[in-house]
Amino acid sequence: MSQVTVFYGLYGSGKSEVSINYALRLAREGRAVTIVDLDAVTPYFRVRDVRERLLEEGVRVVAPKESIRHADLPVLPEGIRRILMHGEGDIVVDVGGDPTGARVLGGLKDALRPGARGLFVLNAMRPFSRTLDEAEEAVDRVTSSAGLPPGGLVSNTHLGELTRIEHISSGLKFAEALGLRLGLPVVMVGVPAHLKSQEEELAKALRGVRPLYLERYLLKPWEIAE
């Protein structure tokens, strides 16, 4: 059965990396996947910047057209409504950050088919989601701006390269506490791929929640090998 999954959250919560990794995981599981770059507010580090890499693995990329890829304009991908309504296979939507970025989805909500699920990406190491009160306010503001009630949380607490197991563990607890408040399940835990080898500790930290291992695709210039 095809599924529309929308990732939204605050700026810098890791939505784009989560979207990319999730789309790739689905593709590697043999599913037909389309990733939609709906980020109209962030100038750098967007899904469209790794379009070729995604295409190589068979992920279809829907993003503003190449000729205006770097335009300082809120541009939506062509045919976006048709894809959200009738697109086949799994559809992963990366929404821009904050209520501002989520507003774009709000304008398209009538195109979302029933059963589309909104997953709120949460990084407790980021400003404006350091406390449960702040995070609750963030979920409320972002999801109401998007016009799509949240169906679950993605615990994505991390510190970039400095992320340790304890961040995963405390982040998950934080997400669960928030989930308890909001009546939402934690459906995914983002885990930086460099922690994969620490199997035992990781299993303890995850307590059965399925990890989404995160390879980094949106690289800084000095991280690019070629």
Partner: peptide, 12 residues
């Protein structure tokens, strides 16, 4: 959690 925060350059 440690005192570190993950920040965008501009916010930081």
């Amino acid at each position: 959690m440690s005192e570190s925060l993950l920040m965008k350059g501009n916010e930081a």
